[in-house]
Design a protein around this nucleic acid. Sequence first.
RNA 1: GCGGAGAGCCGGAUGGCCGCGGGGCGUAAAGCCCCGAGGAAAGUCCGGACUCCAAGAAGCAACGGUGCCGGGUAACGCCCGGGCGGGGUAACCCGACGGAUAGCGCCACAGAGAACAGACGGCCCCGCAGGUCGGGGUCAGGGUGAAACGGUGGGGUAAGAGCCCACCGCGCCGCUGGCAACAGGGGCGGCAAGGCAAGCCCCACCGGGAGCAAUGCCAAAUAGGACCCCCGCGCGGGCUGGUCCCCUUGGGGAUACCGCCGCUAGGCUCGCUUUUGCCGAGAGGGGUCGGGUUGGCAGCUAAAGGUGCAUGGCAACAUGUACCGUAGAUGAAUGGUCAUCGAAGGGGGCAACCCCGGAACAAAAUCCGGCUUACAGGCUCUCCGCGCGU
Length: 115
Amino acid sequence: MSSGLAILKKRADFLAAARARRQGTSSMMVQARKRPEDGDGIRVGFTCSKKVGNAVARNRAKRRLREAARLVLPDAGQSGWDYVLIGRAAATAERDFTDLQKDLRYALRKLHARP
RNA sequence: GCGGAGAGCCGGAUGGCCGCGGGGCGUAAAGCCCCGAGGAAAGUCCGGACUCCAAGAAGCAACGGUGCCGGGUAACGCCCGGGCGGGGUAACCCGACGGAUAGCGCCACAGAGAACAGACGGCCCCGCAGGUCGGGGUCAGGGUGAAACGGUGGGGUAAGAGCCCACCGCGCCGCUGGCAACAGGGGCGGCAAGGCAAGCCCCACCGGGAGCAAUGCCAAAUAGGACCCCCGCGCGGGCUGGUCCCCUUGGGGAUACCGCCGCUAGGCUCGCUUUUGCCGAGAGGGGUCGGGUUGGCAGCUAAAGGUGCAUGGCAACAUGUACCGUAGAUGAAUGGUCAUCGAAGGGGGCAACCCCGGAACAAAAUCCGGCUUACAGGCUCUCCGCGCGU
C-alpha cells in the first residue's frame, strides 16, 4: 500500500492483537497492539465474521473499514502498532461515512491514551 | 380491451475526486495506457475435462445409480421430438411411465369377508309343522372400505350366477401402419389374472478411487534422521579434477575450501592388543537421500469458447465460414465518497404536477455442460379464450 499501511495476513498477528487492547464503538470494534519487536510502520487487518451477514454484506463492510483506515490511520495511527478493525452487523454498512471515520479516530485516541 | 399460456432479454445511469488487483510501456522510481463479478458467480445435486493413486484389458460378485420409445451430446439423472396416462373450453401444462403368471412380504381402521375366498343382513326351495325351528341353493341388490374376485344391457332361473348372448374390458395368436414406444382392426379364449416394486426382489443399461488444499518444481532457515566415504599433525606442488576470477568458439590466471600427488611423521577420546603396527567405535569433515515447516513459481485460464451468415434437420443439434478474443485474487482485488438523474412504492391534487422515497436476489476461487433454488421491478415476441368494432 503506497500510503505506508501494511496488511496483516497471519493468523497469529490477529490473535495477538485480540489479546491486547480493544475499544468498541457503535459501528466497529478496534483492537490494537504495540509490536514488541522493532519495526516501523502501521499494520492493519480487517475482520468481518459470519455474524455480519452473507458474503455481499461482509465484503461491503470490509471495504468501508478499509477505506476509513486508509483515510484515518496515516495521521491518527502510531508507527510500530498493529490495528484490527472488526465489522458489526448492520452498523458498519449503514453508518454515515464521516461518522464512521470519527468512530475510528475516537477509538484510536482512547487506545493510545491507556498506560 | 379484459383474462390466460409459452419463449427470450434487462435487472440502476452519468460525471468529479480518492483508492484496489492484473497486464503493457519504462533500467528502475515516478508516470501513462488497457482490462477487472453473475444470471444465477449460490446450493454443491448430477455429468465431463484435467491430475494423482490403484489395477493386464475385460468379466464376475458386491454396492450405488438410471428406468416408455427414438434422436442430440464429450457425457449426463440434461435437451429435443414422439407415444401413453392425467388436468384445462383452449393455447398449453403435469408424470420415479420397465416387470405383480419368478418368488417372498404387506394390505391399518371399518367390514361377514382383504386372496386356496367367504356369508352380516337378505332372496329362493324343501322338511317338520307354525318356531326366536332344521336342511339346502345363491350372491343380483344393501351396508363397510383406498380397494370387494370383471362392467352395462338382455336372455335365463325357484331365486340367482359368464350359466348363455351382445358390446366394453382382460389374455393369447395373426394382420395393417410406424425405426420404435404404440395405435387401429380381426379371430380365439373364458373369467382363470385385486393393489403395493417410493418393502425385498427380477430384468436392461451405466459406474475403479480420490480430488486444484489434485499435482509438478524451486528456494530458505532451523532441529533432527538414514546411508556412504574420508579422517594424526604439518609442509610442498597447479596437478588435463572441483571451485572462483578474467577475456570469451577457446584459452589465461588464482589455490582459502574439497579432491589428487609427494615429503614428513606417529595420533582428539574410548575399546582391543604385551608393545608398535593393524582393527573397531565415537567426535570431526565431505557427499547423497527422504520427510516436516515457511515462502515462491507452474497448474491458471483460449475454452467440448462466443456472435453473425450459409447448408442439413420439425427440433435439440451438426457442418462450413467470417469476425471477436473476454477477471485471475489467495486474510482473497473488482471499490469508497460526493453531485446530478432516477424505476417500483407511499401521500396530496379534477388535472398538469408537487412532496416523500430511493433499487431485487446474490458476489468468482481449476475450467466447462446441466439441474435445483432465490429474485423489487421492467421490456419484447408468439399463441389461446371472451367481449366490442369493421
